[in-house]
Amino acid sequence: MNTKKGIQILKNYGFFVKILSFCIFLLYPYVKNNYQRKRVTTLSPELQNVINWFLSKDSMSPKKLQKLLYYAYSWTLTLENEDSEELENRLFEEDFEAWVHGPVIPDVYFEYRNYGYQNIPKKDFSPDLPEEIEDILEQVWEEYGEFTGNELETITHKEDPWRNARKGYNPIERCNEKISDIDIFNYYIQQVEYID
């Protein structure tokens, strides 16, 4: 009698597991999409202003926006600081990570990822920024604004800061390593000195 009850319980348990698995299978896409939509991004006001400044120039893909933000950050870090020992003057507080497709600010990625390969619409306004910052952004736009996101990705892949952060990773391996401000400064200060 106890053996029969045990077998019946196992059969009922097996049936329950199958039903539960089926429900999870049906609900997974909904739960996954709902979780992704609810991710809250918090962009600093400084970063949001720089994003709005670039988007006031033209519509662009999220990838192009990320790379322009990277160059704006890098140029500001290099031009607004005396040496790599004291990198106090940053364009914004967010850090870049060395993702497969180049430097990325994760919160910017999550903010604009619904655009995929489509362009983020152009903004009708440009934020007020300090004159020296606006001057740097104009220089970055003049230097890199004509490139596509894919072309900018290729350029960043040839530069030391991104490459250093990805040491030990293969080209298509996921990586969340931060790109070092010291590496950024040391690399781009050489470019400035080379031009002078």
Rank of each mutant, 00 (worst) to 15 (best):
P29Y: 03
F15P: 02
E177V: 06
N150T: 11
N12G: 08
E111C: 12
L10H: 05
N114V: 04
Y35D: 06
I24V: 15
K11C: 09
G116Q: 13
I133T: 15
I172W: 08
N52Y: 04
I9V: 08
T3E: 14
L65P: 00
K32Q: 07
Y144V: 05
Y28L: 10
P106F: 12
R39N: 05
I133P: 10
I133C: 13
Y194P: 03
L87K: 12
E131L: 13
K11G: 09
K38F: 00
P103G: 00
E142R: 13
I19E: 14
Y117M: 06
F54D: 00
F15C: 13
F16V: 05
G168S: 10
Y71A: 06
G168W: 04
D58F: 12
I51F: 10
L129W: 06
Y112S: 07
P103W: 00
V50R: 06
S21N: 11
P171S: 14
Y169R: 10
V192E: 10
L69F: 06
G6Y: 00
G145V: 06
I105P: 03
V192A: 04
K64M: 02
N186D: 14
K67R: 13
Y194T: 04
E134K: 12
G14W: 07
K5Q: 15
L20R: 05
L77A: 13
Y115E: 09
E134P: 02
L69H: 00
Q36Y: 13
E146R: 06
I120F: 03
K178G: 05
F185N: 00
G14L: 13
Y73M: 09
T78S: 08
E151A: 11
K167V: 08
E193R: 09
P62L: 02
I133D: 11
F92Q: 01
F15V: 13
L20E: 03
